[in-house]
Write a protein that binds this DNA or RNA. Structure first.
Length: 941
RNA sequence: GGGUGCUUAGCUCAGCGGUAGAGCGUCGCCCUUACAAGGCGGUGGUCGUAGGUUCGAUCCCUACAGCACCCACCA
């Protein structure tokens, strides 16, 4: 083996071999265990969030596979409607064209082409991470099978009355030219103004002043509302106002939507461009007046003067005109919430448009009569409330249920071309026909169409298809095997439905609403099953300072750059190339040069994965610090070198298990610790505490196996006792091989590489470590007596080391060692561990001082009643030793006083559990024993 | 306005009704034949503040302060 662990060399070797072995596919036996990959954007690239999440999923999948489960990691990608369409439109724009120049069919063809070109980027990056998803079943949300599922769901819901089409006020993104759902809108606080505008009554005798942040919308006002109980304005209710800048008359109405204490207490009502006003308009039977085109420009319903103006230009002109008319009463600064489109960052304009909705709000009884409960969200809420689905950490349950309790109908139509086209047709009279295709739609129609049918131009919200992921990927609705474009079978519902429900969904909290809740809704409705038993909400990855990673901040990290490393200059180039604003660009460059003056070091996939595991506590964010990753790379190196030590101490060929029991205490101890470690690790898998899991293994490997067992093995391997040497050799190897298996789900590459050498030494001839079973902790013998012996040994050794260090004795110098007092057990142990003590502490063979002998002055450590001493002669400063001992004594005296305080408290003795009291008594006894020995030692000095 | 977190060592974070922990950093000694990406030994914390419950509180409860995040229609 090489002297150091070199990730690049070993990572390249194993992935292809694993994949070719077919081991990623479920073996067809054992209990089903399924994990669904949240399908990433097909044309996207891997980011830190993916890498983290996928590491967790891969750990779980590898672990359960090793445990003999019928493990399936269902993989696939998402067509990401808006995002992907936008990329291709940008490409066209750089050629000076728009999608309309191409036409629908040619444009879609072009998107498919882009999907073919870039669709393998992210899946190849996932392979670099070591992801063991079943690629033979890879799906795409727009492949034929999944599209069929989408159509069936749409049609079934439509026919059940749960999908409807209606002219509603929706969130309109004027930049993208499509409706978006409530979830795709973020409210952002912005600095703006509040303007007060006077509306005169038609008789010219009176007026009201309304306050607004959007004066331009006054062109679409249909009323002014005041609170019904507001005495200030009671006399005006029912009066007519002249809407300024127009020739329209509007009424003053009373509605308790109005907050008397806000603004002027009078609200202008613009039903066509405000959600609240829409509701008010409906209550008062006031038809909305739309004043904007879909591009958010003023339309023909407004006075000619404003037509064609963009909404913000219109605002300026309206204000100017109001000012000129003397109707602008006040302008003041005001912070307001502005609805921003997540996708385009354009300001959303509420618009009245024809859209498709999923009814999530109507209560229906079993027989369809009103009342009862909500057909889609009801079961989805129950599944979580009754515990069928559990969130980990469980406080996310609240988030989920509260959202579903307050949900609105889901706008599912998008005015895009890339996506699942809505399977609905219209005749010339505007009647709607829904079906698999035109013929099916006609066949299911209650009336015959008037004239030709024309298909709906819109596509479905991307999340509509991802909502079906848990069952659509398994071949639902199930008419025999589903094949991919190469003709290979990718799913077969009749067989694959055993994977529903999946075991756990690993995902971010940001898509609980977008995706998790909707999967529960569809899966419950269409299969009667829950989609998954547990939802593990993983943390969001942030930078080392806890800041959100974003390209414009320049603090993103590419997981591949961490794996492979990257020089400073290429890093600067790649981080700034998509930044168009020069100031931002300069800032990002500066930051990168400051944060990574040497570029990013290559830490390898294993260390990256281990870091993710170690950071994965229940906290909701993790701060990714390269320093930490470098530490775990060191761990990989440690494991590598431990393996190197073990292997270089083994003879050629297989190492047979020695006959008879383990020869040494150290072996019995390390196996005891190994067993405990495995038990703990298994527990951590159940609770998804990957941080504890990683730490448990880290500590075992480094602090016990390497620091103590390997060191203890050296005298045994080189000693005269051939039986002990043979037994130790075998145990070194057995523990190594077991540890490799236990670590494999976290750090698959390095463990596989080592195992390929270590496994065969034990006569194991599996193809790969990937296919080995998980270690059986139950089969490992426990020996607590041995554990006590090693504990004693560690105490003796660290006592000596402390003296050496504090007395500045060179680590290389071999020193004499004296033992005094102690009991018979100390004598037995001292004899047993004499070679180990001498070797590890660099001492001469320990000499017992006979009772009654005059001791020469020495530095001492105390273990129980045993004194472990290093004679002063020429080595130790007497005064320094006196100080050291007295410091130690005062520390112990403090401890004793603490114990005495507790035990002297009658209430403590009376109320505390017996074992706590007993423990306290034991402690005080132990401290006193040590103190006595130290006093004696001090006296001898 | 509603909801959810967080506050523990210089930094990043675990922990928990009964002796305060890890990684990184830092200090000292050491290239000891697996590993200097290493070894050995240190330093470092009145666990955000104030009350309460308890024999005992970093942990449970209450209030307060500060910091995040999510949801929501205040013109």
């Amino acid at each position: 083996m090489e002297k150091s662990f070199a990730p690049a060399q070993i990572e390249s070797k194993w992935y292809a071999r694993w994949e070719a072995s077919g081991a990623f596919q479920p073996p067809g036996q054992g209990e089903p265990y399924c994990i669904l990959l949240p399908p990433p954007n097909v044309t996207g690239t891997l980011h830190m969030g993916h890498a983290f999440q996928q590491t967790v999923m891969d750990m779980l999948t590898r672990y359960q596979r090793m445990r003999g489960m019928n493990a399936l990691w269902q993989v696939g990608t998402d067509h990401a409607g808006i995002a992907t369409q936008k990329i291709v439109e940008n490409q066209l724009a750089s050629e000076g064209r728009t999608r309309h120049d191409l036409g629908r069919d040619a444009f879609i063809e072009r998107v498919w082409k882009w999907k073919q070109e870039s669709g393998s980027t992210i899946t190849n990056q996932m392979r670099r991470l070591g992801v063991t998803a079943d690629w033979s079943r890879e799906r795409f949300t727009m492949d034929e099978g999944l599209s069929a599922a989408v159509r069936k769901v749409f049609i079934d819901w439509y026919r059940a009355g749960l999908i409807y089409r209606g002219n509603r006020l929706v969130n309109w993104d004027p930049a993208l030219g499509t409706a978006v759902s409530d979830l795709e809108v973020n409210n952002v606080e912005r600095d703006g103004h509040m303007w007060s505008i006077r509306y005169m009554t038609s008789d010219g005798k009176d007026s009201v002043v309304v306050a607004t942040t959007r004066p331009e919308t006054m062109l679409g006002d249909v009323a002014v509302a005041v609170h019904p109980d507001d005495e200030r304005f009671a006399h005006l209710v029912g009066k007519t106002l002249c809407l300024p800048l127009t020739d329209r008359l509007i009424p003053v109405i009373a509605d308790d939507y109005v907050d008397r204490d806000f603004g002027t207490g009078c609200v202008k009502i613009t039903p066509a461009h405000d959600f609240n006003d829409y509701a008010v308009g409906q209550r008062h039977n006031l038809p909305p007046i739309e004043i904007f085109t879909l591009e958010a420009k003023v339309n023909a319903n407004a006075p000619e003067r404003y037509r064609g103006l963009d909404r913000y230009d219109a605002r300026k002109l309206v204000l100017t005109d109001l000012e000129a008319a003397g109707l602008l009463v006040e302008t003041k600064a005001h912070k307001l919430q502005v609805p921003i489109s997540q996708r385009s960052e354009a300001v959303i304009e509420p618009m009245l448009t024809d859209q498709w909705f999923v009814d999530l709000t109507t209560d229906v009884q079993q027989d369809g009569r009103p009342g009862g409960r909500k057909a889609i969200t009801g079961p989805a809420l129950d599944a979580v409330r009754n515990g069928d689905i559990k969130f980990v950490p469980e406080n996310w349950t609240n988030t989920y249920t509260q959202w579903l309790d307050n949900i609105q109908d889901w706008c599912i139509s998008r005015q895009l071309w890339w996506g699942h086209r809505i399977p609905a047709w219209y005749d010339e009279a505007g009647n709607i026909f829904v079906g698999e295709d035109e013929a099916d739609a006609r066949a299911h129609a209650s009336t015959s169409p008037v004239g030709a049918l024309r298909q709906d131009n819109d596509v479905l919200d991307t999340w509509f298809s991802s909502a079906l992921w848990p069952f659509s990927t398994l071949g639902w609705p199930g008419h025999g095997p589903v094949r991919n474009e190469r003709g290979e079978v990718v799913a077969n519902w009749e067989q694959d439905k055993v994977f529903l429900p999946s075991a756990v969904l690993v995902t971010g909290f940001d898509i609980i609403f977008f995706w998790v809740a909707r999967m529960v809704m569809t899966t419950k409705y269409f299969t009667g099953q829950i989609p998954f038993r547990e939802v593990y909400i993983n943390a969001i990855v942030r930078d080392a300072e806890g800041k959100k990673m974003s390209k414009s901040k320049g603090n993103t990290l590419d997981p591949l750059d961490l794996i492979d490393g990257i020089e400073l200059e290429p890093l600067v180039t790649k981080s700034t190339k998509s930044l168009l604003i020069p100031q931002v660009r300069a800032k990002v460059e500066k930051r990168i040069r400051k944060d990574y003056p040497e570029g990013i070091p290559a830490i390898g996939t294993d260390a990256l994965r281990f870091t993710f595991a170690a950071l994965a506590s229940y906290s909701r964010t993790i701060n990714f610090d390269i320093k930490r990753a470098e530490g775990y790379k060191a761990f990989c190196n440690k494991l590598w070198n431990a393996a190197r030590f073990v292997l270089m101490n083994l003879p050629e060929g297989e190492i047979p298990a020695p006959a008879g029991a383990l020869a040494t205490e150290a072996e019995r101890w390390i196996l005891t610790r190994l067993k405990q470690t495995l038990v703990e690790v298994e527990q951590h898998y159940i609770t998804y505490r990957f941080d504890h899991l990683a730490q448990t293994l880290y500590e075992f490997v480094w602090n016990e196996y390497c620091d103590w067992f390997l060191e203890l093995s050296k005298p045994a391997l080189n000693g005269d006792d051939a039986v002990a040497a043979a037994s130790t050799r075998h145990t070194l190897l057995v523990v190594l091989e077991t540890v490799l298996r236990a670590l494999h789900p976290i750090i698959p590459f390095i463990t596989e590489e080592i195992w390929q050498t270590a496994g065969p030494k034990l006569g194991l001839h599996e193809h790969t470590l990937l296919q080995r079973p998980w270690p059986n902790a139950g089969a490992i013998a426990e020996d607590n007596a041995a554990a006590n012996e090693i504990e004693w040994f560690k105490n003796v050794l660290s006592g000596i080391r402390k003296i050496r260090s504090e007395m500045n004795i060179s680590p290389a110098k071999v020193i004499p060692l004296l033992l005094a007092d102690g009991d018979t057990e100390d004598r037995t142990r001292a004899a047993k561990f004499a070679p180990q003590i001498a070797f590890l502490a660099r001492t001469e063979a320990p000499q017992w001082i006979a009772a009654g002998t005059t001791e020469s002055a020495a530095a001492a450590a105390v273990v129980g009643t045993l004194r472990v001493m290093i004679p002063l002669a020429g080595l130790i400063d007497l005064d320094a030793e006196k100080t050291r001992i007295s410091k130690e004594m005062s520390r112990i005296e403090i401890e004793i006083r603490k114990c005495e305080g507790k035990l002297g408290n009658a209430n403590f003795v009376a109320h505390a559990p017996a074992d706590v009291v007993a423990q306290e008594r034991q402690r005080i006894f132990d401290w006193n024993t040590t103190l006595t020995a130290l006093r004696e030692q001090a006296a001898k000095l």
